[in-house]
C-alpha cells in the first residue's frame, strides 16, 4: 500500500464528537405534565379524605404528612442516612459481584458450565425470605442488610452484562482472533465496552431492587433506618410518619436512579453507544 500513497503524516489524535444533551428547558417541558397530574392527585386525596371523614390512622392526608415530615425531620434524616448507606454500599458490592461474575463466566468456559446454571437456579429462591436468616447469623447491624441487597440485586447485573459480553459481532471476533488477539484482549478491548449498554440496563433494574432489599432487611430486624421507621410507626399507629418514611425512601430510590443516569451520561461521552439512539 505504501506504493500507492505519498507522504506519511503523523496523525493528530482524533477526538470523537460530543453527543448533544437536552437542556434544562427541554427537561422542564418533559416533566410538567406528570407534575401537574401528581399535584391534582394530591389535591383530590386531601379533599376526599376531608369530605369522607377518613381517619388519619387509616389514610393520612398530604397536609398531615407534610406537617409530620417537618416535625420529625431530624429523625427522618438520620434514618434516611442509615438506609442510604445500606443501599449505596450494597449496590456497590452488587456491581462488583455482578460484573465480576459475568466477566468470569464469559471468560472461562468451565465456569459458564459450572456456575451459570447455579446462578439461574438461585433465582427461584425467594430472596426476601433470606432476611431472617441473615439477621440470625449477623445480628441487627449493617452486614445482613448489605448481604440481602447484594443477593437481590446482583442477578440482573450479571445476566445483562453476560448478554452484552456475548453480543459482539461474530465476524469481528473471528478477525480479532485471526490477527492473534488473546482472549483477554478481546474481553477488555471489545467485549466489556460492547456490554456497557446492557450493563446499564441491568443496573437500572438492580438499583430499584437494592432499595427493596434494604427496606425488607430492615423490616426483618433493625434498630434504625427508614424501613425500621415504617415498621415502628405502624406499631404506634402513627400513619403520617409511615407515609413520611415511605415517601422519603421512594425519593431516595429516585435520587439514586437519577444519579446513575448521570454516570451513564458521563460515560456516554467516551462510549456513545450507551445511548440508545446511537446503537
Amino acid at each position: 500500500m505504501a506504493t500507492a500513497t505519498g507522504t506519511a503524516r503523523t496523525p493528530a489524535p482524533a477526538a470523537p464528537e460530543r453527543p448533544d444533551r437536552p437542556g434544562p428547558r427541554a427537561w422542564l417541558s418533559a416533566v410538567w405534565p406528570s407534575a401537574l397530574v401528581l399535584l391534582a392527585v394530591l389535591v383530590l386525596w386531601e379533599l376526599a379524605a376531608v369530605a369522607f371523614g377518613v381517619s388519619q390512622f387509616v389514610l393520612a392526608t398530604p397536609s398531615a404528612i407534610a406537617a409530620e415530615t417537618w416535625a420529625s425531620r431530624e429523625l427522618l434524616l438520620a434514618a434516611a442516612w442509615v438506609t442510604t448507606q445500606e443501599i449505596v454500599y450494597g449496590f456497590a458490592i452488587s456491581i462488583a459481584v455482578g460484573v465480576l461474575l459475568a466477566v468470569l463466566i464469559a471468560r472461562f468456559h468451565w465456569l459458564d458450565r459450572a456456575l451459570y446454571p447455579l446462578v439461574v437456579l438461585f433465582q427461584v429462591v425467594p430472596k426476601v425470605a433470606l432476611a431472617p436468616i441473615f439477621i440470625l447469623w449477623f445480628g441487627y447491624g449493617l452486614t445482613p442488610k448489605l448481604l440481602l441487597v447484594v443477593v437481590i440485586a446482583f442477578f440482573p447485573i450479571t445476566l445483562n452484562m453476560l448478554v452484552g459480553l456475548k453480543s459482539i459481532d461474530s465476524d469481528l471476533l473471528l478477525l480479532m482472533r485471526s490477527v492473534g488477539a488473546t482472549r483477554n484482549q478481546i474481553l477488555l478491548r471489545v467485549q466489556v465496552p460492547t456490554s456497557l449498554p446492557y450493563l446499564f440496563a441491568g443496573l437500572r433494574i438492580a438499583i430499584t431492587l437494592a432499595v427493596i432489599g434494604a427496606v425488607v432487611a430492615e423490616f426483618a430486624g433493625a434498630s434504625d433506618g427508614l424501613g425500621y421507621l415504617i415498621q415502628f410507626a405502624s406499631t404506634q399507629l402513627d400513619t403520617p410518619l409511615m407515609f413520611s418514611a415511605l415517601i422519603l425512601v421512594s425519593l431516595l430510590g429516585l435520587a439514586l436512579y437519577y444519579g446513575m443516569s448521570l454516570v451513564e451520561i458521563a460515560l456516554a461521552r467516551r462510549f456513545p453507544h450507551i445511548r440508545a439512539d446511537v446503537r
Binding site: P11, A14, A15, P16, D169, D171, L172, L175, S178, V190, P193, T194, R270, F271, P272, H273, V278, R279
Partner: peptide, 15 residues
C-alpha cells in the same frame, strides 16, 4: 478480510 457487515467498534473513531 473485509466481512459482509462492517463490524466496527461504535466507540472508536474511523481512524
Amino acid at each position: 478480510l473485509v466481512p459482509q457487515r462492517p463490524a466496527l467498534l461504535p466507540w472508536k473513531t474511523a481512524l
